Simulated assay, not measured.
Amino acid sequence: MWLYLLQGIGFGFAAAFQPGSFQTYLISQTLTRGWKHTLPAALAPLISDGPIILLCVLVLSQVPIWMQRGLYIAGGLFIIYLAYGTYRSWKNFDATAQTVHTGDVQQSVLKAAMMNALNPNPYIFWTLVTGPILLSGWRQSPIIGIGFLGAFYLTLIAGLAAIILIFGFTQKLGPKFSRAMLGVSAIALFCFGVYQLWLGLFPS
């Protein structure tokens, strides 16, 4: 049991702090809306990952190539759309704007969940890495499988929340720094989107 808990914690930590489009989106939202309104977006994997885990466990290591390419293309287009929104926030940056409505927070969580669902990385991750571990633990005992999932997602969400808080405190460095980081986030998101499109259209 402890071995599976430790694996869950380790993989959850790696998934949270591995640079990627989802983490970049959280950073850009933090710089735009503030950490208090972005923090709920750390829960997005709980919304999007259920169907992903189910699909990957059922068809473990047999995800069709065309589906993977389609996810890359759809995910790339969606990330570029988010990059454009971040660019607009950078262009129209208002250091005095602090008010965010509840609907904006809910929309941010849904966008984060959609990005995760359209990102091929969770599918590949749960198919090739954590899926086999989950199945192995579940076959020994459902409690072990649930323990692995619990450890993974507690660590993942805590890690994502830490990223949001860290970049939230960078706002104390001043509006110029926040605007510069927002610009970097827009560029990074655009690059991630183009890269995913490339992988979908021109697979190696």
Score class of each variant (00 low, 15 high):
L6D: 07
Q7C: 14
G10L: 13
A14L: 15
A14V: 13
A15V: 08
A16L: 08
Q18S: 12
G20W: 13
S21A: 09
F22K: 04
Q23M: 15
Q23R: 03
T24F: 03
I27C: 11
T32Q: 13
R33W: 12
G34V: 06
W35P: 00
K36D: 08
K36N: 10
H37Y: 05
L39K: 00
L39T: 04
P40V: 00
P40C: 01
A41L: 08
A42E: 05
P45R: 06
P45W: 07
P45G: 00
I47L: 15
I47H: 09
D49Y: 05
I52P: 05
L54Q: 11
L55N: 04
C56I: 02
L58M: 10
L58T: 08
V59C: 07
S61E: 14
Q62N: 12
Q62R: 15
P64G: 03
P64A: 00
I65A: 08
M67C: 13
M67D: 12
Q68V: 15
Q68S: 09
G70S: 10
L71D: 10
L71E: 13
Y72T: 07
A74K: 03
G76L: 04
G76T: 05
L77D: 09
L77E: 10
I80Q: 03
Y81P: 06
L82Y: 01
A83K: 00
A83W: 10
A83L: 09
Y84E: 14
G85I: 13
T86E: 09
W90A: 12
K91W: 10
N92T: 04
F93Q: 06
D94I: 07
D94E: 08
A95I: 07
A95R: 00
A95T: 02
A95Y: 02
T96N: 03
A97P: 02
A97K: 10
A97T: 03
T99K: 01
D104Q: 09
S108G: 15
S108Q: 13
S108D: 12
S108M: 14
V109H: 06
L110E: 12
K111P: 08
K111H: 09
A112L: 15
A113S: 04
M114K: 02
M115L: 15
N116W: 06
A117K: 01
A117Y: 04
L118S: 10
P120M: 06
P122D: 06
P122Y: 07
Y123I: 14
W126H: 02
T127Q: 09
V129T: 11
T130M: 15
T130H: 12
G131D: 00
G131I: 00
I133R: 03
I133F: 02
L134M: 08
S136F: 01
